[in-house]
């Protein structure tokens, strides 16, 4: 296990696109989150500041992060296809890695990327929350920290889906296009055919909702009424409105089932794919 991790680590850390995109990812993560609140928007009732305060900052950063993290999906697709174009899967098998170990390597990589996002999110949330919040208590700070776990699951799922597409197509462009096509065309079209209540049973929906968007309207409404102070009771009501569609438990369950399917399918392809 440790050996597989070390091998995967040295391949990844020295990979050109990783050396460029990871620093950019970090830069944009921080820039994006710290530059926006500095921009003064002149509508007093449309201040975005609450989004940077505890507890909403948890939702906000994981939600926006969900978009930034597509960079990582691109990277994992490149890293997987690279193994085929360089024939290094064959190479590693010749020297004694089993196909199962090749599979585990990429699972570890996806998990590591997801963990990296958790760290990045945690740091950003803490800095942002501590700078911009007026009221700081342990409860307000950590009440929603479970979102980190949900975000981990979300990133892990998209990354493993990236690996699966890369394995199927063995080609970065095809894999990226079909990943994008699935998320922005295929699924939305199918979804539009079913009734809105049932659209929850689609992966893009239930995985995205693992890190639900902050309920901006309600927050702003609160701000108008309460002039910058948010009472605990208010907080609760906001919390409830955050997940109006399906309960988070159901959401997580569906995501775990989806993840299992991806893992099984990926494992199967690793067993069957011709390495040479």
């Amino acid at each position: 296990m440790k050996k597989l991790f070390r091998i995967e680590f040295s391949k990844t850390i020295n990979f050109g696109p990783v050396k460029i995109l990871i620093p950019l990812h970090i830069l944009f993560f921080f820039l994006g989150f710290f530059a926006i609140p500095r921009i003064k928007i002149d509508f007093p009732f449309l201040s975005v500041l609450p989004l940077y305060q505890f507890p909403h900052v948890w939702n906000f950063i994981t939600w926006i992060g969900g978009i930034y993290n597509l960079t990582l999906v691109l990277l994992i697709i490149m890293l997987t296809c690279m193994e085929f174009s360089n024939k290094t899967y064959k190479h590693q098998a010749i020297f004694g890695l089993s196909r199962k170990e090749l599979f585990i390597q990429k699972v570890m990589l996806a998990a590591s990327f997801s963990f990296y996002v958790v760290i990045l999110t945690f740091i950003t949330v803490m800095i942002s929350g501590l700078i911009y919040s007026y009221k700081i208590t342990p409860t307000i700070i950590f009440d929603r920290s479970w979102i980190l776990l949900a975000s981990f699951l979300q990133n892990f799922i998209w990354l493993m889906l990236g690996v699966l597409f890369a394995l199927i197509f063995k080609n970065v462009i095809l894999a990226v296009l079909s990943f994008g096509f699935y998320r922005v065309m295929f699924e939305p079209i199918i979804r539009s055919l079913v009734e809105k209540e049932n659209s929850w049973y689609f992966p893009t929906k239930f995985v995205s909702k693992l890190t639900p968007e902050p309920d901006i309207l309600n927050i702003v409404k609160d701000k108008l009424q309460e002039a910058d102070q948010v009472s605990p009771a208010e907080l609760e009501s906001i919390g409830e409105t955050l997940f109006p569609d399906i309960p988070i438990i159901q959401n997580i369950t569906l995501s775990l089932i989806f993840l299992s399917l991806i893992l099984i399918f990926t494992y199967y392809i690793f067993q069957k794919r011709r390495l040479n």
Binding site: I7, S10, K11, N14, G16, N86, K87, T88, K90, H91
Partner: peptide, 15 residues
């Protein structure tokens, strides 16, 4: 032979 093109000889042999 198929090695990782972007890694050095030593890094490749370490793998």
């Amino acid at each position: 032979p198929h090695f990782y093109p972007y890694l050095s000889l030593v890094q490749n042999l370490k793998i």
